Simulated assay, not measured.
Amino acid sequence: MNKEEWIEAALPNYIVTNPALQEEISGLSQKDQKDQIRWAFEDEAEALNIETWELALNFSGKPEEEVRALRFAVHKEAAEALDMDWEEYCALNAVEA
């Protein structure tokens, strides 16, 4: 799965944890409900100061060890793409190596 697929898979798990949002959007069309859920999810990630894909991992239902491994792999890939020293990348992005 890629990051976008993680997010899409997490949204149904996310909405069940937010009854206030469920009630607020109950009168909207399915498309508008989906949009509102996505926006609320993105807002929550921003409020937590993490990437949306990272929040998605928290709602994936995967074991914590697998979530940590996936998060680590994505950060490692980003550091390599940026041609950054791993320790420097970790320090700048609050990643525990």
Rank of each mutant, 00 (worst) to 15 (best):
A94F: 13
E23M: 13
A81W: 07
A56G: 10
D43K: 12
D83I: 09
E80W: 07
V95Q: 14
D85N: 14
G27L: 10
W86E: 02
L70D: 13
S29M: 05
L28V: 03
E64G: 01
V67I: 15
Y89N: 03
Q30H: 14
C90D: 08
G27D: 14
N13F: 08
Y89F: 12
L57I: 00
N2P: 05
P19L: 06
E65N: 13
A10Y: 06
A69H: 01
E23S: 15
I15W: 04
R68T: 06
S60F: 03
K31V: 14
L55T: 09
W6I: 02
Y89I: 08
L82Y: 10
E51M: 10
E96M: 06
F41H: 02
E44S: 04
Q36D: 14
E54N: 01
E80P: 00
A9F: 10
A69I: 00
E64N: 01
A79I: 06
W53S: 06
N18E: 14
E66L: 15
W86D: 00
R71A: 15
V67T: 06
A91K: 12
L70F: 07
W39G: 02
D35S: 12
A47I: 01
A47W: 03
Q36M: 15
I50K: 07
R71D: 08
Q22W: 03
F72R: 07
E51W: 06
P12D: 04
D83W: 06
Y14S: 13
A97Q: 11
A47Y: 05
E54L: 01
L11E: 11
I50D: 06
N49W: 08
E44W: 02
E66C: 02
E77P: 00
V16G: 01
F41Q: 03
E66I: 09
W86V: 01
Q33D: 04
N58S: 13
C90L: 04
V95W: 06
A20H: 07
V74M: 09
A45G: 01
E88K: 06
A10Q: 09
A20F: 03
E66K: 14
D32N: 14
A97P: 12
C90H: 06
E44D: 14
F72D: 02
L92E: 15
S29H: 10
W39V: 15
A40M: 08
A81K: 14
Q30K: 13
Q33C: 08
A56L: 05
A20Q: 10
G61N: 05
A97W: 09
T52Y: 00
A81Y: 07
E54H: 00
F59R: 00
W39Q: 11
R71C: 11
L92R: 12
V67W: 08
W6N: 10
R68M: 09
E96F: 11
V74W: 06
G27V: 05
A40H: 11
K76P: 00
V67S: 03
E87Q: 07
L82H: 04
L92I: 08
E87H: 05
A94D: 13
E4K: 12
E8K: 11
L55M: 09
H75F: 03
C90V: 09
D85V: 03
N93Y: 11
A40D: 12
H75K: 00
Q33V: 01
K3E: 15
K31S: 11
S29C: 05
A78K: 15
L70K: 13
W86K: 01
Q33M: 13
K31L: 08
E64L: 02
V67C: 05
M1C: 02
R38Q: 07
N18L: 10
E51I: 02
W6L: 15
L11Y: 12
R71V: 07
R68F: 07
N58W: 05
